[in-house]
Design a protein around this nucleic acid. Structure first.
Length: 249
DNA sequence: TCTCATGTTTAGGT
DNA sequence: GACCTAAACATGAG
């Protein structure tokens, strides 16, 4: 569930429920963070940075990361005990299977919003510079690097590379500048497509590479391999996606 | 029933 | 220290 655009949906849901500025009536859950601190506090803001979600209070922030299996429910509960429940007078939010932390620092000290592909502060030039500083890295790895493309996950990675016809094992330093710029541009464009399609409940139908068997462009099989530092699933077409490698000698 | 997977950190080895 | 791997966390879909 939780790549960057999914966290935007969560943030928008809570903002639309008019919970900004509202007081927390009760906080509970299996988390080990000090929930007494939240009680009675007013939410100053809901924010996100990539896949991280933040509930901001005057003196501290609750950070929630849904990891691989995390979910949330608004005004509903599962049988399973929530990791964190925050109750307001008019609504409650339940988070399950997530990592909860309390942050004392100013968020801007910890997170650079120019790296968040969903942010108004996203900066494509900065991302390009970061890529150029990693000539030996694989494109399949850099797209998942949260310091460069915060919010991009494995689905977006695969779809971006399919869109721009770049093989996941291509080396950053071997990509022509034009292609490198396409990596940066498409990471943001596809993330917003992802957001729109997920809201319209048609995200899965829009996938062209991820979990696909056949390439719609050429009718040849989409291959699946575990590539890169984290051995994440790569779906790609060897016919349509060009492998850029550095000449070695 | 079994396998797989939209993620990240940390510990330990080489 | 750089680099790599496994483990840990925990759950639903197919």
């Amino acid at each position: 569930m939780p790549e960057g655009p999914s966290i935007i949906i969560l943030k928008e849901l809570l903002i639309d429920l008019n919970l900004t500025g509202k007081q927390v009536v009760a906080a509970s859950g299996t988390t080990t963070v000090d929930l007494d601190r939240i009680q009675g506090q007013k939410v100053s803001d809901f924010k996100s940075w990539g896949k991280n979600f933040f509930i901001c209070f005057e003196d501290f922030t609750i950070q929630i990361h849904l990891m691989l299996f995390g979910t949330y429910l608004i005004n509903e509960r599962k049988k399973q005990l929530p990791r964190l429940t925050i109750e307001f007078e008019a609504a409650e939010i339940n988070f399950y299977s997530c990592v909860v932390k309390i942050i004392e620092e100013d968020l801007s000290e910890l997170y650079d919003w120019s790296a968040d592909v969903m942010s108004d502060d996203w900066n494509a030039e900065t991302a390009l510079s970061k890529l150029q500083a990693l000539p030996n890295a694989l494109v399949c790895d850099v797209l998942l690097d949260q310091k460069i493309f915060s919010g991009v996950g494995n689905i977006i990675k695969n779809e971006v590379l399919y869109q721009i016809r770049v093989h996941p094992l291509s080396v950053v330093g071997a990509l022509p500048l034009k292609k490198l710029k396409e990596v940066v541009q498409e990471a943001r464009i596809y993330s917003f497509d992802f957001l729109r399609w997920k809201k319209d409940l048609m995200l899965k139908k829009k996938w062209l590479a991820y979990r696909k068997k056949i390439c719609l462009r050429c009718d040849l099989p989409i291959l699946k391999d575990n590539f890169g530092k984290n051995k994440r699933s790569a779906y790609y077409c060897v016919n349509c996606q060009i492998l850029y490698t550095l000449k070695d000698d």
